[in-house]
């Protein structure tokens, strides 16, 4: 949508669930930090040769064993900061930041 001054209109719309993808590549989560909202889904896809196993540091949730090109998805139900790691290679860490906002800003062109 274009405003009367030709600028971009930024509308506040009701939040729709989003799908976020985290690639596991070269022994790292990419991106390492993602911001989501409750109701969103996060998908981890393993692009390494070797298996990985995604787990919240406190063990509250864990993936399946992820072989190469396998994926696992998590429905984020609550707000909070969630630090996770690969159980097999604990130097691999990531964070899911789930905000409690009920609207998401969308740019409309």
């Amino acid at each position: 949508m274009t405003g009367i001054f030709g600028g971009e209109v930024v509308a506040q719309t009701a939040s729709l669930p989003q799908r976020h993808v985290v690639e596991i590549r070269d022994f790292a989560f990419q991106p390492p930090h993602i911001v989501v909202e409750p109701g969103d889904t996060v998908v981890w896809i393993n692009k390494d040769f070797v298996p990985h196993f995604v787990s919240l540091v406190d063990g509250k949730w864990q993936s399946n064993l992820l072989e190469e090109n396998q994926s696992w998805k998590l429905l984020v139900k609550e707000a909070g900061f969630f630090n996770y790691e690969c159980v097999f290679h604990p130097e691999m860490t990531g964070k899911v930041i789930s905000s409690d906002e009920h609207t998401r800003t969308h740019s409309q062109h």
């Binding site: 040769f49 070797v50 298996p51 072989e67 190469e68 097999f88 290679h89």
Partner: peptide, 9 residues
């Protein structure tokens, strides 16, 4: 870990 990773490779 060695069994898992080396087997995969």
């Amino acid at each position: 870990l060695m069994i898992r990773d080396h087997t995969a490779i």
